[in-house]
């Protein structure tokens, strides 16, 4: 039976789609049949991050409305054949999604996949609620910053009360915290919340800490999930996250400010 994972945050711009792409690619590279579903109807991004935007013919809403079959809409990743993407519709809005429709599509996907990742839109409106409704696991993405932490906490309350598991009194969604855009130098200066500050409010199992990195933007712009860039700290941190999700115990990395070289110390500046 497939496991449904929602990647959610409440707040926008914290790295949900980047995380969905990285986690999905990571699971697929380990041999799991993985489907990525973009719930951000009207503002579709996942296909861009995955670099398959020019291959989109049919989308999630077409499948829900019965205008296309799931197989017609799913796009197979060119780098990893175990990974398929169900893009969101660009021209519709979130009202096009219905609980039953989403349920039917996820159910059909569950027949042939090991993991289904739901990339949630920002906010706590219909799209976000439907993205998490059927989830078994939730990766709550937060930045080390108060409004993001507050919004993530709000989302935890919703996960605990409005999901299918909550409504049917089944075991609750397994919640994980992923801290992204972590800048150790800024934490040290007190400009950013530390890991402990965040965990004081969001007392969840920490799946990983992704350092702020230029590699993320570069990867997004070329449509390459950052996890494929194993030279970069963010790519390695995402690979660690995938391993931890699968139950491996790894120490957190990239938490300390980078040692400054002789010249930068000599000449100052950041």
């Amino acid at each position: 039976m497939a496991r449904i994972i929602v990647v959610t945050s409440g707040k926008g711009g914290v790295g949900k789609t980047t995380t969905t792409a990285a986690l999905g690619m990571g699971l697929a590279l380990r041999g799991f049949r993985t489907a990525l579903v973009d719930f951000d109807v009207g503002l579709r991004n996942l296909d861009l991050i995955m670099g398959c935007e020019r291959r989109v013919v049919y989308d999630f809403v077409n499948v829900i409305n019965g205008e296309a079959s799931l197989n017609q809409a799913l796009i197979r990743d060119k780098r990893c054949s175990q990974l398929l993407i169900l893009p969101a519709s660009q021209t519709r809005d979130k009202d096009a999604l219905t609980r039953e429709g989403v349920g039917t599509v996820l159910n059909e996907l569950a027949q042939s996949f090991d993991y289904i990742l739901c990339d949630s839109p920002a906010g706590i409106e219909k799209g976000a609620i439907l993205a998490m409704y059927y989830a078994d696991d939730a990766v709550v993405v937060a930045n080390p910053e108060v409004s993001s932490v507050r919004d993530a906490d709000r989302m935890l309350g919703i996960l605990a009360s409005k999901s299918r598991r909550a409504e049917n009194s089944e075991p609750p969604i397994r919640e994980y915290l992923l801290l992204t855009r972590y800048a150790p130098e800024r934490v040290q200066k007190g400009e950013m919340l530390s890991i402990d500050d965040v965990r004081e409010i969001l007392a969840l199992e920490l799946l990983g800490v992704i350092p702020e990195s230029t590699a993320v933007l570069t990867a997004s712009n070329c449509g390459n999930p950052v996890i494929l860039d194993q030279e970069s700290d963010a790519g390695q941190a995402y690979a660690d996250m995938v391993a931890r999700y699968l139950g491996e115990e790894l120490p957190l990395r990239f938490l300390d400010p980078a040692r400054r070289g002789f010249f930068s110390r000599l000449f100052g500046g950041d």
Partner: peptide
């Protein structure tokens, strides 16, 4: 028993309220 998260509201009508965990900001 659970943490009360931002946006959640709990009202114990006509009785006491016992919370075993934290009440987070915004709750």
């Amino acid at each position: 028993a659970q943490t009360v998260h931002a946006g959640q509201r709990i009202y114990a009508t006509g009785r006491d309220l016992v919370l075993l965990s934290n009440v987070n900001p915004g709750a």
